[in-house]
C-alpha cells in the first residue's frame, strides 16, 4: 500500500484549503475489484471530469477556456476574448496569471473574481480533451498512454494528489459550484477503476 500525504505542500500556503488537500493514495488489493464496481467508479470519475469546474479548461484543440455551469447560464467561451495560445499559459497575448495570480494565502472567494491557486494558472494539454465529450470518449483518453502523458492509474492518482489547480475544483470559491464528491473520493475512484483494469462501458 502506498500512502502519499501532500499536506505539507499546502498547509502553510493555503490554510483555508489545507484540510481538503490531504490526499491518501491507497489502492484496493490487486484482483479485488470486479468489473461492475470498476465501471461504477468510472461513472463517478466521469461526473467529475465532465463537471464545469474540470471540463471548462479541458478544451482540447481550442485555446479558449469555457465558462459554463449553474452560475454562468448558457456555456460560452471565457469572457474578454481570452486565448491561451500554443503555450497554454497565454504567453502570446495575455498570460493567464495576469488575472489568475499565484495566491499563496488562501484562494479567491470573491464572486466573479478570477480563481486563484498557489500555482501558475494554465490550460491542460491539448490531448486532455474533455469539454462536451462523452463518457466513452473520456474513458478511452484517460487510459490511453498516448493521451494521458504515459501515466499508469497510480501515476494519474499521484498527479491528482499534487496538482493544486485540480484541487481548486473542489474549493472554487465565489458562487461557483464545486465538482462532485471530494478530491479524496475522486482519487479513491480512480484507484478502484485502475485496479479493475481501467474498464470502459464500450469494452
Amino acid at each position: 500500500m502506498r500512502i502519499l500525504l501532500i499536506a505539507g505542500l499546502l498547509a502553510a500556503a493555503a490554510p483555508l484549503m489545507a484540510a481538503e488537500d490531504q490526499v491518501v493514495i491507497s489502492p484496493p488489493a490487486e484482483g479485488s475489484v470486479n468489473l461492475e464496481t470498476g465501471l461504477a467508479a468510472w461513472d463517478r470519475i466521469y461526473e467529475v471530469a465532465s463537471h464545469p469546474r474540470c471540463s471548462n479548461c479541458h478544451v482540447g484543440d481550442s485555446d479558449q477556456p469555457m465558462w459554463s455551469g449553474p452560475s454562468y447560464g448558457a456555456p460560452r467561451p471565457h469572457g474578454m476574448n481570452i486565448r491561451a495560445g500554443d503555450s497554454r499559459i497565454g504567453a502570446e497575448t495575455i498570460p493567464c496569471r495576469t488575472c489568475h495570480v499565484t495566491n499563496e494565502t488562501g484562494g479567491n472567494d470573491m464572486p466573479h473574481g478570477a480563481p486563484q491557486v498557489a500555482d501558475a494558472w494554465q490550460l491542460p494539454p491539448v490531448e486532455a480533451d474533455w469539454f462536451g465529450r462523452t463518457s466513452d470518449e473520456i474513458c478511452a483518453q484517460l487510459r490511453d498512454p498516448e493521451r494521458n502523458d504515459g501515466r499508469t492509474f497510480m501515476e494519474l492518482a499521484d498527479h491528482l494528489g499534487h496538482d493544486v489547480i485540480l484541487h481548486w475544483a473542489w474549493n472554487p470559491g465565489g458562487t461557483r459550484e464545486a465538482a462532485p464528491y471530494s478530491l479524496q473520493e475522486h482519487v479513491d475512484d480512480l484507484l478502484i477503476w485502475g485496479v479493475a483494469g481501467m474498464p470502459c462501458h464500450f469494452d
Partner: peptide, 8 residues
C-alpha cells in the same frame, strides 16, 4: 494577438 491581449 493584439485584440486578444487587449480585450481584458
Amino acid at each position: 494577438q493584439i485584440d486578444a491581449a487587449m480585450s481584458g
